[in-house]
Amino acid sequence: MTVKLILRDKEFEVRPGMTLLSSLEKINIIPEAVLATRDGEMILEDEILKDGQVVKLISVISGG
């Protein structure tokens, strides 16, 4: 029973049933610093992640 979140070459696993926002907090990623997509579609922070889902995170912060 897991949800997988992927950011660049890192993979994180959280338990299903939490919102995207809580899941990001759990793995210590600042929600403002990423966009989340599932199957190529952007998802919102209040979406509840279900078992087996894979969420791809896109870092939005750049230097300069």
Partner: peptide
């Protein structure tokens, strides 16, 4: 910044995702 990334993504603009190698730790 998050809004601009969302714009590029939704618009389908192909941009450089890699950070400038010198920006690390800036």
């Amino acid at each position: 910044e998050r809004e601009m990334a969302a714009y590029a993504l939704l618009r389908g603009i192909e941009y450089i995702y890699e950070e400038c190698p010198f920006a690390e730790g800036a």
